[in-house]
Design a protein around this nucleic acid. Structure first.
Lengths: 133, 133
DNA sequence: CCTGTAAAATGTAATGATTACAAAAATATA
DNA sequence: TATATTTTTGTAATCATTACATTTTACAGG
């Protein structure tokens, strides 16, 4: 908790209790939760928590490069910023798996001035769903 | 137009006039248009065209692997299926550029049974927007 | 301790893309 | 031509996200 407090401060974010709780949840739940999932989980201990706060806080984290937003067909998912990796989304059960591969560096391109981030998402069917047929 | 008709037939899609028009638009406009853009462009010549039809048709094309859906923060974009490539999205002007790089093959992974597709999207600022500051 | 001010959190309403659904139009079939 | 099927359409519903105004909390200075 000390660690999270320092981390937020280092990123120019005042470490309120709610913010630390949201960050900690993301840190301890690496399954790329949706806002809904975070809300359901934290409401138990923070009964007055509102979804708006979660949206605000996550957007704040994203702006300050603490968290990455993963854009899928339906909801947005959120992931702690850590070593570069890719994702595999099972289009049957919607689970998002981590894949241990570093996205390639973007090649030189006439229109590109500055690349900040790379998202690599594979789509398909996971083992569990394949066997369930 | 003959070509498109055959293409649709080869993918088990009956080549109605509307469907061919939508496919042709995507084929001739590689800037990854949104549904809105397609609607605005085709309404001129197909005055009764409805957005629902565009949604239906694009989803049909995606199911039959004629078109790829690109998931960004806001709207979905659509792209003709062609040789594998990546995208660069300028987060200032929202333009989506093609990048001539093949996404890497997914490595072996305990949870993956079958990979159908890979989406590689870079984020940053494009030259035009960088200079506009 | 108070008190005032800024920041954070909240609740409700609005937005806007996408889908559901049922009806109308077009097309194929017999 | 009549009928069945497919395609298209329009409207209404859904649902994630944001806007906005208000309330609550934290905090500095007296």
């Amino acid at each position: 908790m000390e660690r999270i407090q320092t981390l937020l401060r280092n990123h120019d974010i005042r470490p309120s209790y709610t913010r630390m709780a949201i960050y900690r949840y993301l840190d301890e739940h690496r399954e790329h939760p949706t806002v809904e999932a975070i809300y359901d989980a934290l409401s138990a201990t923070l009964p007055t928590l509102s979804k708006t706060t979660i949206y605000n806080t996550l957007n704040l984290f994203v702006r300050h490069h603490l968290v990455k937003e993963i854009d899928l067909q339906d909801h947005k998912r959120y992931d702690i910023v850590r070593t570069p990796h890719a994702h595999f989304k099972c289009d049957v059960c919607d689970t998002l798996y981590d894949i241990d591969i570093t996205p390639p560096i973007a090649p030189k391109h006439a229109d590109i001035s500055d690349v900040r981030d790379a998202q690599l998402v594979y789509h398909g069917t996971c083992k569990r769903c394949r066997q369930a047929v």
